[in-house]
């Protein structure tokens, strides 16, 4: 893709990408119920099924952000209802510390959220996703913790090579825009 196209990506209408990590036993079934109940929730939400909320490694969330997600929502069984008895209790401590660390690094904490959704709460699932998507729309594009795939990479590339500074064409045969080469 030519580099100026990459530039324009940022100017196009903002459609957030939201990753929802749902536990297999409650929240994923809750999402299923939302579907069979014909309750709509935003198509920006992409669901990743995990065996248990306890399976969610903070690295997963960071990877989602790196690959262009604008928000990450984690869902699991209500405390006390875990299919594996105690998984979500461990998850609760881990996720709390992780959210706190993101906040500490100055990354918008509203981009992350945790909600306990049971298999019977299809309506709650849809409502949670609608509310979270709205929140992400308000926040805008994820810049602070996005991977260097778009602008930053472009900027670095320009700085190091002199290519592609002002929407110039990348690729072969392009002249350096300035005297650096």
């Amino acid at each position: 893709m030519p580099l100026d196209k990459l530039d324009n990506l940022d100017n196009e209408d903002f459609t957030p990408l939201i990753v929802a990590f749902c536990c297999n036993w409650c929240s994923y079934a809750g999402a299923d119920l939302a579907g069979t109940s014909r309750l709509s929730y935003p198509a920006e939400v992409k669901i990743i099924k995990v065996p248990c909320s306890c399976r969610i490694d903070p690295l997963f969330v960071l990877r989602a952000f790196q690959r262009g997600a604008d928000g990450a929502i984690l869902c699991g069984c209500h405390p006390g209802d875990c299919h594996y008895s105690t998984g979500n209790y461990y998850a609760r401590r881990r996720i709390t510390l992780f959210f706190s660390m993101l906040d500490y690094l100055g990354i918008e904490k509203q981009r992350t959220h945790l909600e306990w959704v049971s298999a019977a709460e299809g309506a709650k699932f849809a409502e949670t996703m609608r509310a979270f998507t709205k929140q992400i729309h308000a926040l805008g594009k994820n810049k602070k913790i996005a991977g260097g795939l778009r602008k930053e990479l472009h900027a670095n590339f320009s700085a190091y090579t002199g290519f592609g500074g002002q929407g110039g064409q990348g690729g072969q045969g392009a002249e350096p825009t300035e005297g650096r080469g």
Partner: peptide
């Protein structure tokens, strides 16, 4: 790293793994 993100990720995860 090609981006500061990787540094952030490395250091968050490094600290998290010893939390």
């Amino acid at each position: 790293s090609v981006s500061t993100f990787e540094d952030q990720m490395f250091h968050i995860i490094r600290a998290y793994h010893v939390a």
